[in-house]
Design a binder for these strands. Sequence first.
DNA 1: AGTATTTCTTGATGTACATCAATGCATAGG
DNA 2: CCTATGCATTGATGTACATCAAGAAATACT
Lengths: 157, 157
Amino acid sequence: MKKINVKKGAVLQRIGDISSKVFLVESGLLRSYIIDDKGKEHIYMFGPENWLVADSCEPNTPCQLFIDALEDTIINVATKEELLKEGPDLTALLRRLDTMQNRIIMLMSSNAKKRYEHFTKTYPNIIQRVPLKMVASYLGITPEALSRIRNELSKKK
Amino acid sequence: MKKINVKKGAVLQRIGDISSKVFLVESGLLRSYIIDDKGKEHIYMFGPENWLVADSCEPNTPCQLFIDALEDTIINVATKEELLKEGPDLTALLRRLDTMQNRIIMLMSSNAKKRYEHFTKTYPNIIQRVPLKMVASYLGITPEALSRIRNELSKKK
DNA sequence: AGTATTTCTTGATGTACATCAATGCATAGG
DNA sequence: CCTATGCATTGATGTACATCAAGAAATACT
């Protein structure tokens, strides 16, 4: 577990990399994302304070995700092998499974407006720290669509 | 770890249940799914031989998923607490994370046709064992849409 | 075997969101 | 301070898929 500092914009992992590290965020903000075959970015996960950011690809297979820093960030880095040896944090693992299950359920069963409302409730602090187009990317919609949703919601109040 | 037999159609878990069991499928087929606020089913996961089926909700919180049997099925049942005590199968946990990551990436970045093609490649044996409407539900589309996709694909050949 | 029920398909229409294009604003860098 | 680049918004149009409705085919039930 090595502590390192990275500057905003630093790239920690590229698609296709084999070395699969795990990043525990101490302060700052990471993100993981993919680029689809049309060149479009889709944010897989934001990684604020105390989050674990990692590609869940199996050991020794190429990763699918890019990981980079959206802010100056302090992280603890470990390899998966290290973590497995020293006995991983099961609570954290289960919490992650829960998070991913929720994400899948959201993507399958809710329209864009509901996903946005859920996001603002679940991650209230993230929305002020990143451009809206990244929120849109996380939600699986375009910035234009998000703009119209926010517009509509603010009128209602 | 108790071995039990369940008949096709048996319900193993309902939304809101607290007791969170884990089901390891020995033979047969389980499925987990949600029902959205319009009453529509969305299949979260199929559980054929050797799969682990469980709700990833945190301990002592209400579950979000229904789990039932699509075929006569033999399963090994354990509680999460038991599994945690006896040291869980980390490889299986990591594999599950990988599966879920792939699912999220699929849902975010691919259209219905690509998701279907990916599904047939990844789970070639499931498609013969369940009605197509369940495949559609897993893919996040309607049976009608799936029918048209298959139609189109078969013409191409 | 015969009826009921579910499943699959096809067509017509509707809609949530994407795409494209233009404009105003903010932010960053020299 | 000024310009360049990125970001957010708005309108017009396009499209992938949903919904609705009907009929055919498969399956299950007695």
